[in-house]
């Protein structure tokens, strides 16, 4: 069997390290030994493919999961999922989760003294269309405190999980909002070494996506790992 075409390796500075001491939880959880470099084989370049049967169109609207409307600033969040060559990644699963507008997660372990919203679970999912587009309707999440250091607050963010065409394109990340005053203090955001790479995890306000009398629009494109041009050398 011919050798497989692998995926491109990490661009230095573009991804956070495993050990990032300002984020205290990394200290006892990051590997201490160097990762072992391996070539990509059929096991790496394949991966799970999810059919449309698991995802319903209404799963992309987080404002319609309760009996009433959730409290907060209604927003449309849309963008494209692209590969490393700028081509759309069609028909791939996008999962999101977030705090409500008060900065509280609908999760038993979140004991932040802020109200839950009975009409907001903060979870959504969709499948990208043929052009790699995704679109959610949600409520802008609030900032919230955490115990990483004294007076620590997370900037407003939405968690994303994507698969792409192989297990190598798997991505879990967090998307932030423009101009957040908490950016300088957040060790997770600042765990990304390069300034340009940090800017790429911030969405942009988009008046064209905004719907009059109804919801603000934000746009954010996501780039998954690209492919090598030629088969791997042994």
């Amino acid at each position: 069997m011919a050798d497989v075409v692998g995926y491109r390796r990490e661009v230095p500075g573009s991804q956070p390290p495993h050990l990032h001491a300002p984020y205290a939880s990394t200290v006892k959880r990051a590997p201490t030994r160097p990762l072992v470099y391996i070539p990509h084989t059929l096991s790496e370049v394949t991966g799970p493919v999810f059919g449309h049967d698991r995802v319903r169109p209404e799963d992309a609207d987080l404002t319609k999961q309760g009996a009433g409307q959730p409290i907060g600033e209604r927003m449309i969040l849309a963008g494209r999922v692209l590969d490393g060559d700028g081509r759309p990644v069609p028909h791939t699963l996008v999962e999101i989760w977030q705090a409500n507008s008060t900065g509280r997660y609908h999760h038993e372990r979140d004991q932040h003294d802020a109200p839950l919203d009975p009409n907001f679970t903060g979870t959504g999912r969709c499948i990208t269309d043929a052009e790699g587009n995704y679109r959610f309707v949600t409520i802008k999440p609030g900032a919230y405190p955490w115990r990483n250091h004294h007076n620590a607050w997370r900037p407003e963010h939405i968690h994303f999980s994507l698969f792409g065409p192989s297990f190598m394109t798997r991505l879990v990340t967090q998307m932030y909002f423009p101009g957040d005053p908490l950016f300088p203090y957040d060790p997770i955001f600042n765990g990304i070494p390069d300034e340009a790479a940090r800017q790429r995890v911030i969405c942009q306000f988009d008046l064209g996506l905004t719907e009059p009398e109804w919801a603000l629009g934000y746009r954010w494109d996501i780039v998954l790992r690209g492919r090598d041009a030629t088969p791997m050398e042994k």
């Binding site: 573009s14 372990r109 995890v201």
Partner: peptide
Amino acid sequence: TDKLIPTASATVGPYFHIGLTW
């Protein structure tokens, strides 16, 4: 064409269950 740099990863955090256990 120029290659695009993949979006930076982030932790799943402590509350991923609400979004991912389905």
